[in-house]
């Protein structure tokens, strides 16, 4: 047994590599927070966007059934997410991209952006949930499942939108491209999310929703793997 244990011990250089990568990742994450903090108008803009959208939706349909609540909520989250993520590559100029190119590797950079955007989208969807349930009522019957759906949703949206925004940022009309490139790609995730949250609202009786969660995780895994493989080709400009 001890012999085997000695074999599977990681060599020291591997530990150091992991440590260096983690440190780099944390530094890049720190950079994202710093950027956001310096440009406070951007995050305030998104927050205001969410609040105005909640009010527009509320005013145009004051009494909503749980079914409609579910769909409208995810539409608010979808549009808020796309607007929050679209700036993640546009805001940094080509010269600064070149600077990162010399400092770090593309996988760490995109992973830091995905993690940062996941946090941002989670905060935004919680804000949307709080403000929407304040004005239109809270039909959620299974809060823990709903919270899990929000987390998975933020993660999936973050992967797809971050990657697509890195493509769209290179083009001339990036906002239009962002929408047409990402909506078809996001649809499987969105449909699964709407279905899972309908289960959390007790609109559908389904005891085997774990399979949907696994599907969602599978889609996320496919997308994030492709992001790691493909991002280096987008980055080299």
């Amino acid at each position: 047994m001890q012999k085997i244990a000695a074999h599977i011990q990681f060599p020291a250089y591997l530990w150091r590599a992991i440590y260096m990568n983690l440190k780099r990742l944390l530094l890049l994450l720190h950079k994202e927070f710093l950027l956001e903090f310096r440009q406070r108008y951007a995050i305030s803009g998104i927050v205001l966007y969410v609040l105005s959208m909640v009010f527009v939706v509320y005013i145009s349909s004051i009494k909503v059934q749980a079914q409609v609540w579910n769909i409208l909520f995810w539409l608010i989250v979808l549009f808020a997410s796309i607007n929050a993520v679209v700036k993640s590559f546009v805001q940094e100029s080509g010269a600064r991209q070149l600077y990162y190119y010399q400092l770090t590797d593309p996988v760490s950079l995109i992973l830091a952006k995905i993690l940062y955007n996941t946090l941002l989208l989670l905060v935004l969807s919680l804000l949307a949930f709080a403000s929407y349930s304040l004005v239109a009522g809270n039909p959620v019957k299974d809060p823990s499942l709903f919270a899990l759906v929000l987390l998975l949703g933020s993660f999936g949206f973050s992967i797809a939108f971050t990657f697509i925004s890195s493509i769209a940022a290179r083009a001339n009309q990036s906002a239009t491209l962002m929408a047409i490139l990402s909506f078809p790609v996001i649809l499987p995730i969105l449909l699964t999310l709407v279905r899972l949250s309908a289960i959390a609202l007790r609109l559908i009786q389904d005891t085997s929703y774990q399979r949907d969660i696994i599907n969602l995780l599978a889609i996320d895994t496919i997308l994030i793997t492709l992001t790691f493989v493909l991002f280096p080709y987008i980055w080299k400009d």
Partner: peptide
């Protein structure tokens, strides 16, 4: 180059569209 990248990404998202979602 960017279209090639998107093509690969799009093909991978065809799989959930055509094989996973219809099962639900």
């Amino acid at each position: 180059r960017l279209a090639a990248v998107y093509n690969i990404f799009a093909f991978a998202s065809l799989i959930p569209l055509l094989y996973i979602v219809p099962r639900m």
